[in-house]
Design a protein around this nucleic acid. Structure first.
Lengths: 149, 149
DNA sequence: CCGGCGCTACGAAGGGTATCGTTGACAGCA
DNA sequence: TGCTGTCAACGATACCCTTCGTAGCGCCGG
């Protein structure tokens, strides 16, 4: 029994972990040295390695041998991590109101017309897809949806 | 060196802290017992008290004597906490793209027509304001009060 | 007046994160 | 062949979060 050592899976990322995942998402992959470089070289080598290993334990990244070094690849999609984080924020901070979230977002930042136009079209798509006619039918109780990682 | 004093002073709440702040934001205020009740009574009394005290240390809440108990009030607005959290997510996970964030948001949830309509109007307002022209005198402050009741 | 109850304060235990120092392996080079 | 630089693994350290156990205090009912 206990086939797999289920460590800390399904959890969110900590600050530092997120920093490193961010690099991996942006670059696609990276060795310890590369990640360390991308972070701004303020972190020690072993520190970055350690966190990468923790991330691997969590199932968020994997590695391949590349020459003498390991190259790390993200296993968790940034979108799915983002979805989780957003869900959390919407529920805990904005009480389930995505509108309030959006309002806060546009309050804090300045968007170009083009950006706003693209965001509008995203909403249009959502409107057509999510609700082709009926409105009050099902009020989506925005509790925690099941996500998978 | 390079200590990690990045998330201490009210910048970013931990899981449990967020749970409790969420209750306070929703209810407006609460005693330890009330908060504990609202959480689902799976938490011990002293646990909730402790976190409330930590929150107070961080400057996120304050308390007033009320009879024999303390009544805690949130000092940090949910919107400002949300703004910070959103900023973080946009930058670290969505690489600064609010569009991608919005796309993910609408991917994960189903919205009613009414909600989408309101979100669209939020974008309209942002478009008029953010446009390099003139800011109209009417400044529709998006507060967290008059919404979603 | 006294005991119980509710409340806060103190602080410790348990587990996790973040940062390194050190060690051992190995490859390239003089 | 022996030195040096790069790399992963291990272990240590320090700090933080979360959960409580226990103690002390004031109030209320009997």
């Amino acid at each position: 029994m206990s086939g797999q050592q289920d460590g800390r899976e399904g959890r969110g990322f900590t600050d530092r972990e997120l920093d490193i995942m961010s690099v991996l998402w942006r670059e696609g992959s990276g060795t310890v040295a590369e990640v360390r470089e991308a972070l701004g070289d303020d972190a020690g080598y072993t520190t970055v390695l350690k966190i990468l290993q923790i991330l691997e334990e969590k199932g968020a990244v994997r590695h391949e041998q590349e020459g003498r070094a390991y190259r790390y690849f993200p296993l968790v999609e940034s979108v799915s991590a983002g979805g989780r984080a957003l869900s959390r924020i919407v529920n805990k901070i904005f009480h389930g109101s995505a509108e309030l979230l959006l309002a806060t977002l546009v309050e804090d930042r300045e968007f170009s017309e083009a950006e706003i136009e693209r965001m509008r079209s995203i909403l249009d798509r959502a409107g057509r897809k999510g609700n082709a006619g009926e409105i009050s039918a099902a009020h989506p109780r925005m509790e925690n949806k099941p996500y998978k990682m």
